[in-house]
Design a protein around this nucleic acid. Structure first.
Length: 314
DNA sequence: CGGCAAACCTGCGAGC
DNA sequence: TGCTCGCAGGTTTGCC
C-alpha cells in the first residue's frame, strides 16, 4: 500500500481505514465478497452507528447507477440507526424510515478520516460527515459500487435484495437447504454457487475455495448432488467464509491500533490464483492409487476463472 | 424461463 | 521507454 495516496500524505489524517483493493493491485487482499463486506461493515459501526449525518457530499451524479432522487437531502440530518449486511450489501438503516443500500462493487472502499478531512482525491465519490466531526469517505475507482435508497419497510422487496438466497452464515443454512436450491439446476456447480439466489454472498474466489474444501468438481452438474454431497458443500461454504470473516476481524482490530498499514485479509487461498501449483491435499506421489495429481488447474466457466484440483475434486 | 455472454469501469502487467 | 492490449471482478442487461 506504499503507493496509496491516503497513506502517503503523511499528515496523519487517516486514523482508520476500511479498505479493499483488487487482487490485481494487491496480492494480499481479496475482492469484496461476503467476508470482506462484513469486515468493512463492522469497521464502520463505531464511526456511524447511532450518529447523525450532518453533511453529505456527492461529487459525481452517479456511481454504477444514477444517483437516487434527492440523495443528499434524504440523508442529511438522519441518524444511522443500525448497520447491517445482506449478501454483499451493506445496509445503513436511517431514521425517517429509509435505508441506504451500499455495494462495494469491485474496488469500493470506505476511508475513516479525522477532522479536518483532507481534500478529495480522484475517485472519492461520497462523503458522510457526522456530528462528532469525522468523515466517512467512499472511494471507488472502477465505479462498480453503488448506493441506493429505499423505504426500510420495503427493504426485503427491493429488486436488489428480493431474490437473494439464504445467508450462508445463518444457522438455517445446511445441506437440505442447499440441496433444494440446487435442484433442477442444469448449470455447472461453480456457476450455481455464484448465483446469488442459490447462496447469498459467495463470489468467484470463495466459490472455488469452497468447492475445493468440499472435494467437488466445479464442472459437475449442479443438480447431480445428493444429500451427502450437498451437506459437504454447505459445510465447506460456511467454513471458508467463517475463516475469512475471522481473519478480517482480527486484522481490522490490528489496523485500527496501528493506524497505518492495513494488513488484513492475509488470506490463505488453497486453489484460487494458484494454477500449476501442487494441491495441498494430494500426496506427492501415489502410484499405487493410479491417478496422479497434476496440480491445480485453471479453467473458464461462464467467463470467469475457476481453479480446482481435478484429482481431489469430483 | 434458464443459462450464457457481453457490458459497465479502471488499473495493472505483459508484450511489442 | 512508451504504447496497446487483455484481464480481473459483481451485477445487470440482452440474447438465444
Amino acid at each position: 500500500m506504499a503507493d496509496d495516496p491516503y497513506l502517503e500524505r503523511g499528515d496523519n489524517s487517516v486514523r482508520g481505514l476500511a479498505s479493499l483493493r483488487s487482487a490485481a493491485e494487491r496480492g494480499d487482499e481479496t475482492l469484496p465478497e461476503l467476508p470482506e463486506v462484513e469486515t468493512v461493515m463492522r469497521g464502520l459501526v463505531p464511526r456511524l452507528e447511532g450518529r447523525v449525518l450532518t453533511r453529505v457530499v456527492q461529487r459525481r451524479p452517479d456511481l454504477r447507477f444514477p444517483r437516487p432522487e434527492n440523495f443528499v437531502q434524504r440523508l442529511e440530518g438522519r441518524r444511522v440507526v443500525r448497520l447491517g449486511r445482506r449478501a454483499k450489501y451493506i445496509l445503513m438503516e436511517l431514521s425517517g424510515g429509509e435505508t441506504l443500500i451500499c455495494h462495494l462493487g469491485m474496488s469500493g472502499r470506505f476511508l475513516l478520516l479525522e477532522p479536518p478531512a483532507p481534500p478529495p482525491l480522484p475517485h472519492d465519490h461520497v462523503d458522510f460527515e457526522t456530528a462528532e466531526g469525522g468523515t466517512i469517505r467512499f472511494n471507488d475507482p472502477r465505479r462498480f459500487g453503488f448506493m441506493l435508497l429505499t423505504e426500510t419497510a420495503k427493504l426485503a422487496q427491493h429488486p436488489m435484495l428480493r431474490d437473494l438466497g439464504p445467508e450462508p452464515l445463518d444457522p438455517g443454512f445446511d445441506g437440505p437447504t442447499l440441496l433444494a436450491r440446487l435442484a433442477g439446476r442444469r448449470s455447472p456447480l461453480k456457476a450455481a454457487l455464484l448465483d446469488q439466489s442459490v447462496v447469498a454472498g459467495v463470489g468467484n474466489i470463495y466459490a472455488s475455495e469452497a468447492l475445493y474444501e468440499a472435494g467437488l468438481s466445479p464442472r459437475r452438474l449442479a443438480s447431480s448432488l445428493g444429500p451427502a454431497r450437498a451437506h459437504r458443500l454447505a459445510v465447506a461454504v460456511r467454513e471458508v467464509l467463517t475463516r475469512a470473516v475471522a481473519a478480517g476481524g482480527s486484522s481490522l482490530r490490528d489496523y485500527v491500533q496501528v493506524s497505518g498499514e492495513l494488513g488484513y485479509f492475509q488470506h490463505a487461498w488453497r486453489v484460487y490464483d494458484r494454477a500449476g501449483e501442487a494441491c495441498d491435499d494430494c500426496p506427492g506421489s501415489a502410484p499405487a492409487t493410479g491417478r496422479r495429481c497434476a496440480g491445480i488447474q485453471r479453467i473458464v466457466q461462464s467467463n470467469r476463472a475457476t481453479y480446482y484440483c481435478p484429482r481431489k475434486q469430483r
